[in-house]
Design a protein around this nucleic acid. Structure first.
Lengths: 344, 344
DNA sequence: CTGTTAGCGCTTTCAC
DNA sequence: GTGAAAGCGCTAACAG
């Protein structure tokens, strides 16, 4: 590989001059010299060595991103799509993604190592949990980072997140407009903040229409297909006039479980029962009927993430950490139908 | 961040000595000095700057990996799992993954750029196609790389691949043992080498049992859910005694399409029709009935990939490029049943 | 055994 | 405008 020296020799100038034209400094280089250097660069086929540049500038142009540990045999298409979009977004800003893995029970050492060796310029976190050990660690390290997702509400760190509350509120409103009155929701364990926000959106919408919300409408589940099945099973065990006519699931996989179980009970989803998912995972459109769901605008999230990170990496960092919410988008497909007035 | 100089000053030795204990050279350092240096390192909290090391050693300890472009709304869980496993595997060898994206129609410039800037030490390719432009480019560049997947048979480049032929042969044998005689296969376009190898496994198994293979048994499709549906639709249009009693799909997504369509025709999969997929994607186990499929041993593939890459990066590179095939594993679930002798 | 020193390839004062 | 030279943090001859 040719170095800057080769170019300088070829052009008959000093390496400093080559560097000047490379970084096209205001520190004028005469048009003539500039041309000569450019030609020499082309002739020897020179591209600056990025490691040398990094050493000099004390940066790496690398953003660290930890792989979520894939639970055996599970799928998390939102995060898969997220990391792809993130890669694109950081490239747009002149960075690359350095991906690494860690064990979920003890992620901090890996981050620490990457900081200490100065491997990356910043981190993007995803899958942030409540009491996520990474957040306080990174906050007190002073190392630049931003999260996709919230954590403890009282922690002042930069994040971009999907506004699950607004999303589920919109979904609930939609069902309400279709004439549904008993709308069930399959929530997550109360430890899940994401789940709590989304549930709050449901409650908000129901309350604003003065809809009764008996506890039987809220099924506390998890983010699994089974959980969706169990919820429907539970509701089917109720007297007919207490069963929800529409169901909101906090993820598509749960919604799919609910649809599967509903079919097993002889219910036609979209006619006897309306179902709304969350994520707009690739599976959603393959379902029969195709699943109405809340799409997470992942590319937009990543754009925002990277833009914000750039300000964090610049000299003039904001006084208070940016915390940005982006609303999901209701994608209406075939799994929800209006309730015939007769059934109300 | 403390540097080697800080440690040297703290320990009262030269930076060379610090470097020696860091790289614990045979070039002996006395036990005493060693201890002093180690203590100083601990006291100042020093970790070598990796960029400086990289510049000196002219390596980056980074492996480049291009994100497969995710077709809008599709899922490719095998590759998702692959990249996660790959990240783990390269970390085991002291590397990190640098992920980048490119447009499928013109990937070469991005690779070229990464080579020229000396951003990475090697590449791992996935999703290699026939006539894949990246392969000849990398071959003639002399830059280290290895592919997960084959390309043109006459190209002598290093790869690790799943032995689709052996896998489908095993699946076919299994169906044959269950008593099936008309076994249909949903193949891919002939341009797909992967598809060709898998189809060959089918033909091999059928031939070895002298089973007739009328062209109606081989449906030429693509790697989509729709393709699975279309295949079943096609076969249902045939006279009953020409319809396959078992179907092999070259991917789980196709198998799922076939199952869905079969259900639409009132067929009970696992009783009226046996189905085998390929990949063991996370969806496979959620299907009703759970899908019998060929699991790609991805972690093993990645181990092999990295081990091979290491020999490629070492001085003593092998004469002929390593080309390794790893057989998939038949995971028997519920989607295949024996044919009652009466039906034969 | 340990220290001096010369780079790795580049950017950037600081002279001229 | 251009070049000499210092230096980013580290490794590794080469002396001693």
């Amino acid at each position: 590989m040719p170095t800057i020296k080769d170019v300088a020799r070829e052009a008959g100038v000093s390496i400093a001059t080559v560097s000047y034209v490379l970084n096209n400094k205001r520190h004028f280089v005469s048009e003539e010299t500039r041309r000569v250097v450019l030609e020499a660069i082309a002739r020897v086929g020179y591209t600056p060595n990025i490691t040398a540049r990094n050493l000099k500038s004390a940066r790496t142009r690398l953003i660290g991103y930890a792989w979520h540990q894939v639970p055996e045999g599970q799928v998390n298409s939102t995060l898969d799509y997220f990391i792809y979009s993130l890669a694109r977004a950081v490239e747009g800003a002149g960075y690359h993604l350095l991906t690494f893995t860690h064990h979920n029970n003890n992620p901090v050492p890996v981050y620490d190592e990457l900081i200490r060796t100065q491997r990356v310029d910043a981190f993007v976190l995803s899958g942030t949990l409540i009491d996520d050990a990474r957040v306080p660690f990174l906050m007190q390290s002073g190392f630049p980072f931003i999260a996709f997702g919230r954590s403890n509400p009282d922690w002042a760190f930069p994040y971009v997140d999907i506004d699950g509350q607004a999303g589920v509120r919109q979904a609930t409103d939609y069902l309400l407009q279709l004439g549904h009155e008993r709308i069930g929701i399959i929530s997550w364990r109360p430890e899940s903040t994401t789940g709590r926000y989304r549930l709050a959106g449901y409650q908000q919408a129901m309350e604003s229409m003065d809809m009764p919300m008996p506890p039987t409408l809220i099924y506390s589940g998890t983010d699994t297909e089974e959980s969706g099945r169990e919820a429907v099973q539970y509701w089917q065990g109720l007297p007919a006039d207490e069963r929800p006519t529409a169901i909101i699931a906090l993820s598509d996989i749960v919604a799919i479980g609910a649809m599967n179980e509903a079919a097993r009970h002889g219910l036609v989803v979209g006619r006897d029962l309306s179902v709304i998912g969350f994520d707009d995972s690739p599976l959603a459109q393959y379902m029969k009927p195709a699943l109405t769901t809340l799409r997470q605008p992942i590319p937009e999230v990543c754009q925002t993430l990277v833009m914000t990170l750039e300000t964090l990496l610049s000299k003039n960092l904001p006084e208070t950490p940016p915390q940005i919410l982006i609303p999901p988008q209701l994608i209406i497909r075939e799994s929800c139908h209006p309730i015939p007035p007769s059934q109300r």
